[in-house]
């Protein structure tokens, strides 16, 4: 018995069990029924069901022997496009078992590939199109080159509605015998912003921490910046005390090990409640947008956040 992680334990096995995304699910069911799956691009934020949808298709097409006909690759873990090509080649070479006419390759985080690597991927997709179907998943479809997009059916996964996500969390809590308060549920949603994987993992961590899950225990467990720390840091910066703001940032990122992305999210929430003039809040948010975009496109989180804090002093 391996790792028992609830986000895996409760991952839907059938397309019908997927929460939300009614339109997408009904089209995917059509593909499965016809046993005709096109190349697909699943675009959307983390934890909205892209990987789950791909796994469900594999389960429904291949039944118990799905593992032989389904390959999951990660563009951000693979060391270059050549590694991906070789893995695809090895996998696609063998005949399919059973009556499904093709195998499925899920290439996760496909937007981590450079445009050049994507060109190479495009050729690979064409070479093995008789025996395999590709499902690419990406946070942003705009980072996938046009020739690939035009060869794929594109599905956009939006964030789950709060109601849908909470229903799922309540269902899990009930099954696992965990008591969770309404405030606890809200706190989880507040922190994870509807990312289901993170929501369920957070719920599990809270449950291990204590039998009753409350908003307090959620915040205590959450591995993200405690709101007060971030707020203090932002206030230091606004008051032009850059040195202390910088020290705080260093503590949050290096000593507490919180990701830059989480710090950005927390800053964003913090800005609304600050006692500075409204127009300045807006400028702070605008600058934060640039900062997050840069971190997201591969910038160094420390430098980008430092520059942001320095900027707050002169906005």
């Amino acid at each position: 018995m391996g790792l028992e992680i609830w986000s895996e334990k409760y991952r839907p096995k059938k397309l019908d069990e997927i929460v939300g995304h009614k339109e997408i699910v009904s089209r995917l069911k059509g593909f499965v029924k016809e046993k005709g799956v096109p190349h697909m691009l699943f675009a959307g934020p983390a934890g909205t069901g892209k990987t789950t949808a791909a796994l469900c298709i594999a389960h429904e097409l291949y039944g118990d022997g799905w593992k032989a006909s389904y390959l999951e690759l990660n563009a951000s873990d693979a060391r270059g496009i050549d590694v991906i090509r070789n893995q695809v080649k090895d996998f696609a070479r063998t005949r399919t078992i059973g009556n499904a006419p093709f195998k499925i390759i899920l290439l996760d985080e496909a937007d981590a590939l450079t445009p050049e690597a994507q060109q190479a991927l495009r050729r690979t997709m064409e070479n093995y199109t008789n025996t395999t179907r590709f499902i690419l998943s990406a946070n942003y479809s705009s980072r996938i080159i046009d020739p690939i997009q035009s060869r794929c059916a594109v599905f956009r996964f939006s964030r789950l509605k709060a109601g849908e996500a909470k229903e799922m969390l309540e269902h899990i809590s009930k099954t696992e015998g965990v008591r969770i308060s309404t405030e606890g549920l809200d706190a989880i949603m507040h922190i994870t912003e509807g990312d289901m994987r993170r929501s369920i993992n957070l719920l599990q961590a809270c449950a291990v921490h204590g039998k009753e899950v409350t908003d307090e225990s959620v915040y205590a467990v959450a591995a993200q910046a405690r709101p007060e720390d971030v707020k203090e840091m932002v206030m230091f910066a606004v008051e032009r005390n850059f040195q202390d703001a910088r020290k705080k940032l260093y503590d949050i990122l290096v000593n507490q090990g919180i990701s830059g992305e989480d710090v950005v999210k927390e800053i964003h929430r913090t800005i609304y409640g600050l006692t500075v003039e409204e127009a300045k809040k807006l400028r702070m948010i605008e600058a934060l947008g640039d900062c997050e975009f840069r971190i997201d496109s591969g910038g160094d989180q420390m430098i980008q956040l430092e520059a942001y804090l320095a900027k707050l002093g002169v906005l």
Binding site: I5, E8, D108, Q204, A205, H209, A223
Partner: peptide, 30 residues
């Protein structure tokens, strides 16, 4: 852990590992 969690190591480090730590600290079973 990638085959079991269906995510890249980068994502696991970022999103899952901090919570796994909480679990390991509270329950030796993990």
């Amino acid at each position: 852990l990638t085959p079991q969690v269906h995510a890249s190591s980068r994502k696991i480090v970022r999103d899952v590992a901090p919570l796994l730590s909480v679990m390991v600290r509270n329950d030796p079973e993990f």
